[in-house]
Structure formats: structure tokens, C-alpha cells
């Protein structure tokens, strides 16, 4: 992916985030992710039925990396089974941490494949996935 395209994807998802806004609805599991080291503070809500992620939303205030990553994630995981979700999360984490990964699983989330060049932004890109992981682990 070309660097300008990567940035454009991030900016688009930051300025026009998808699935932003959490409604108080039964059947959603919620988690708050308040970064320990920076000011990213996002909430995630996920509806899981019969082992499938039916809906995923987020809300809150965070930087462009974290917000765009959350937006992309919410799209990416809708309709996935828990085991598919776990596999995607693992591959995403591997990408961020410069380990081998399957990029075919990550779609637009591939735009963060060079975030390791800014080490203090890695946690921003990872924050939404850590939130989803918590929800899945608890389910």
C-alpha cells in the first residue's frame, strides 16, 4: 500500500468515523479503554450472538491513529465468528509488532503496517483491538 493511500485511509476514518456512537441497548457488552500512557480514551460496545459478532461500535476521544483504527476495526469484525476474530486480532498485533502476519485478513487495517516507525504510536493503533479482545475473552 502506498504511503499516501495509507494516510488517506486513516484521515478518512478519523474525520468520518464509522460505527461511532454507542447506544444503550441490551445485548451489548461494553468496555472502556483508557490508555495508561497517553490521552486516548475510547469505549467499545459489541453484540455477540451464537458466537458471531453481530455489531460493533465505539465512542470517545482519541488521536487520529486510535480513532481511525477503531473505525476500521468496527467494520472489519462485523459478521465474523469469535475464532475468526481472534485470528484477525492476532495477525493485526503481529503486524504492529513487526512479526510475520497474513495481510489478506486485515483489509484496510493494513494501513498501519509501518506504524512501528513511530514506536510511541503503536499503543494507539493497538488500543481498539485490546478493547475487542477484552470483550471476546469475557464472552
Amino acid at each position: 500500500m502506498d504511503e499516501n493511500l495509507k494516510r488517506s485511509i486513516m484521515i478518512e476514518h478519523y474525520q468520518n468515523p464509522l460505527n461511532k456512537g454507542i447506544i444503550d441497548d441490551e445485548g451489548y457488552k461494553r468496555v472502556n479503554m483508557n490508555s495508561k500512557t497517553c490521552i486516548d480514551n475510547l469505549d467499545f460496545a459489541c453484540k455477540i450472538e451464537d458466537g458471531i459478532i453481530k455489531d460493533l461500535k465505539f465512542d470517545g476521544e482519541a488521536c487520529a491513529i486510535s480513532t481511525s483504527s477503531a473505525s476500521i476495526m468496527t467494520e472489519l469484525f462485523k459478521g465474523k465468528t469469535i475464532s475468526e476474530a481472534k485470528e484477525i486480532i492476532e495477525n493485526y498485533e503481529n503486524m504492529i509488532n513487526e512479526k510475520p502476519y497474513n495481510k489478506d485478513l486485515l483489509e484496510d487495517a493494513n494501513c498501519y503496517d509501518e506504524i512501528y516507525k513511530q514506536p510511541n504510536r503503536k499503543k494507539c493503533a493497538l488500543l481498539p483491538y485490546e478493547g475487542l479482545k477484552k470483550i471476546i475473552e469475557d464472552s
Binding site: C38, E61, C63
Partner: peptide, 10 residues
Amino acid sequence: FAQDVAAYLN
């Protein structure tokens, strides 16, 4: 966002 400003300045 303030944090993006700091990341840019960094």
C-alpha cells in the same frame, strides 16, 4: 487532537 500535534512535533 492534541496528541496528534505532539506526535507531529515529536
